[in-house]
């Protein structure tokens, strides 16, 4: 029973990652990311069939709060100044990126199978799905020109890794869990600040077209 719930959440995570790739508007991407982090947050509950220790609960709560609510708000604050909300020109079209992501998912599953890694007792679906989520996040990060969508890509990668971590471990010390969450959170925060500076500086040009003269003359 428990493994079916875990499998379902893994499938859901990969599906949400795909939908982020397909979405045009940045606001939509952030909402989908929030949903995905919610699903990843719930995985420990399925893991222990509701016989949760005190710190497990705390981890779940903090993960869900920080990744599903606080981070999306920061991102919304960051894109406040960006005039055009839509993705102006992704490097490769939506259709093409979907095809490539399908291919990446196939690669993830092939890699998970071919490495014959021992000890995947809990559920044999977790490793391939987390690998797929990481690859999709990577793909999102690489193909988008907007700074904000790159941040979302990075966060999808983090979710993939977290999926692997939470679902496979039980004895992960609380301090490390918190440390990792804190780091991801601060990373997003600083990225948002930098994006703000970029917006103030360039106002109109998109991120990648900036090739003006070398400022401080490296």
């Amino acid at each position: 029973m428990m493994t079916t719930w875990i499998n379902a959440s893994c499938i859901l995570v990969v599906f949400l990652a795909l939908s982020i790739l397909a979405s045009y508007r940045m606001a939509g991407m952030i909402h989908l990311f929030a949903a995905q982090s919610l699903v990843v947050g719930l995985v420990p509950l399925f893991l222990r069939q509701f016989s949760l220790s005190q710190n497990d609960l705390m981890i779940v709560a903090i993960t869900i709060v920080s990744k599903s609510f606080i981070t999306p708000n920061i991102l919304f604050w960051a894109i406040r100044h960006v005039p055009t909300r839509a993705e102006v020109k992704p490097l490769i079209g939506i259709g093409a990126s979907l095809l490539v992501s399908a291919l990446l998912i196939a690669v993830a599953f092939w890699v998970a199978a071919s490495l014959q890694l021992p000890g995947l007792s809990k559920s044999n679906l977790v490793l391939p799905c987390s690998l797929a989520a990481v690859l999709l996040g990577f793909m999102l990060l690489v193909t988008r020109t907007r700074a904000i969508s790159q941040v979302v890509g990075y966060l999808v990668m983090e979710n993939g890794i977290f999926l692997f971590a939470l679902s496979l471990f039980d004895a992960m010390p609380i301090l490390i869990e918190m440390g990792i969450l804190l780091d991801v959170f601060v990373a997003v925060f600083i990225m948002a600040i930098v994006v703000n500076h970029i917006n103030e500086e360039f106002s109109r040009q998109p991120m990648t077209l900036v090739r003006s003269k070398m400022g401080e003359n490296t």
Binding site: V134, Y154, A187, V194, E201, S212, G215
Partner: peptide, 24 residues
Amino acid sequence: SFHRCPESLEATWKYLLVCSVGVA
């Protein structure tokens, strides 16, 4: 990004991106 000019911001962004992916 000490100097707040376009190039240093671009350099910071490149540094942040590559290092975060690496750290991930």
